[in-house]
Simulated scan of single mutants.
Amino acid sequence: MKKSLAVILSGAMLMLAACGGGSNQASGDKKEKMVKIGITQIVEHPSLDATREGFIAALKDAGYEEGKNLKLDYQNAQGDMNNNASIAQKLVSDKNDLILAIATPSAQAAVQATKDIPILFSAITDPVSAELVQSLEKPGGNVTGTSDTHPDAIKNTIAAIKKFIPDAKKVGIIYNNGEPNSVINVKNAKEAIKEAGLEAVETTISTSSEVKQAAESMVGRVDVLYIPKDNTVVAALESVIAVANDKDIPVFSGDGDSVKRGTFASYGFDYHDLGYTTGKMAVEILKGKKPSEIPVGFPENLELIVNKNAAKEEGITLTEDLLKDAKIVGE
């Protein structure tokens, strides 16, 4: 009888242990999956950094928090194309769930590296010409994202040159002709400059270390400078601003963040918002939507941004009428 009781008790304990193990297993099954996202960025400057920060903010707002259920691998190529290609290959070999590519060279390298992992791009001038997507409405493949080209931005900024500097005749443009996005931006800027009855004067660079010398070469040859959305030049923007302030040359730029850094004016938008829009696309993809089903996005809001301190440094006289409806920074 005692032996039978011992057997019964032993069997009951085994059943309890089994039930306990099943409970732990079920609990383990409910553990949230860690999402891995690789981020590749061609170079550091405020517009691209703000894009990245906006992207991460959108993920956080959707419940994806780094260290909890999200692992981010941020890589910066520092403007080096060999690094850029290596970073893309690394993010693919690490089997990330999604790749964010910020700026055209980073996006092109990522697209060349994989057709299997979803890729989102942001801060891209022309995704179709860069051969990232088949069309803006139907991207196709494993790629989509957001462009930073508002259709009226360049035209309005060039028109602002005539508005603020009515005697201007020659517009200097500094850019890296090795950046596909810059070539497109400069082409559009030259068309707008010609339509405004102005003359474009170009100088090209290949590295950020050449930017200051390029700016100095414009002194005496141009009335104003226009800095397009060029990652190489914008990374060394302070070099341009120093020359412009010293020689009283007004500087107009292709993005609003450059105005905050010291250029005089631009028609721009908030790159953080652009990144946030891209982050919302990422959430859709992580929940099962295909990149090919998401049209390319664009900035929605465009506003005139003017830096009052830059106006003072660059010898520009401002009036209330000129500043009507402008967003003022640098006060």
Rank of each mutant, 00 (worst) to 15 (best):
F164H: 10
G268M: 11
T104N: 09
E202R: 02
A282Q: 01
S147R: 07
E303M: 12
E44R: 14
K30G: 14
K155R: 15
A236V: 07
I99H: 08
N307H: 07
I184A: 15
T319A: 08
V183I: 15
L322G: 07
A62G: 08
V43F: 02
K33L: 08
T40Y: 05
S217N: 14
S292P: 05
A109F: 07
K194D: 15
I37D: 09
G268R: 05
D246Y: 00
K280W: 02
A77S: 14
C19L: 13
I241D: 04
E210Y: 13
N181C: 04
S253K: 06
Q75C: 02
R221E: 14
I241T: 10
L198M: 11
Y276I: 01
K287N: 14
M81N: 15
S27E: 15
P166K: 06
N96M: 10
R221F: 02
F252D: 06
A58Y: 01
G279A: 00
S122L: 06
V128I: 15
E66R: 04
E314D: 05
A26I: 14
P118R: 10
L100M: 11
E210I: 12
F269K: 04
R221Q: 15
T263C: 05
M13C: 14
G54T: 09
D321P: 01
R221V: 07
I42C: 08
L14I: 13
G11C: 15
K229C: 11
D61S: 12
I8R: 09
D49K: 12
D152L: 10
I165D: 00
A12P: 05
D257Y: 05
D126W: 10
V233H: 00
D167R: 02
V92I: 11
P105S: 12
E210L: 09
A168G: 04
N69G: 08
G54K: 10
S4H: 14
